[in-house]
């Protein structure tokens, strides 16, 4: 009993008034995961249900895809994608929409991010529309 009391006093076991750092990190991780899931669902809904096919997206959306195309057939690493995204004012979570839905323009495989057929089509469409 005395040992347990000492452990509780150090915050190692048993009920404590404040949650442990580990518990807080776990909760935070779950919240982030939930946010990612919500982001992805929102993007999928926007893509499949609300937006008509062929709608124009903001230019930065296409610039991310173009930058991934420019990396070549091996694609980009997830860190490189984060850098590409940051250059276009997307944070890591904001990039989740690129992977969501039946017509997702990006796919992740073995740690590399590559364009899907839809992504390649969007790049071609963007080039055709913007290149003089």
């Amino acid at each position: 009993m005395a040992a347990k009391g000492a452990q509780e006093a150090r915050g190692l076991v048993g009920p404590t008034r404040a949650p442990s750092i580990m518990a807080l990190r776990t909760d935070l991780w779950r919240l982030r995961e939930g946010l990612d899931r919500l982001d992805a669902q929102l993007a999928r809904l926007a893509e499949e249900d609300e937006a008509p096919a062929g709608r124009l997206r903001p230019e930065r959306y296409y610039l991310v895809l173009l930058a991934v195309y420019e990396r070549g057939p091996h694609g980009a690493s997830t860190d490189e994608l984060a850098t590409i995204g940051a250059g276009c004012d997307y944070d890591r979570r904001g990039l989740g929409g690129y992977f969501a839905g039946k017509r997702a323009p990006l796919r992740s495989e073995g740690g590399r991010v590559r364009l899907t057929v839809e992504g390649t089509r969007l790049v071609r469409e963007y080039l055709g529309r913007t290149v003089p």
Binding site: Y69, E70, V123, R124, L127, G128, V131, P132
Partner: peptide, 8 residues
Amino acid sequence: EQPLLYRL
């Protein structure tokens, strides 16, 4: 493969 890249 995408010739328009050149003009970009």
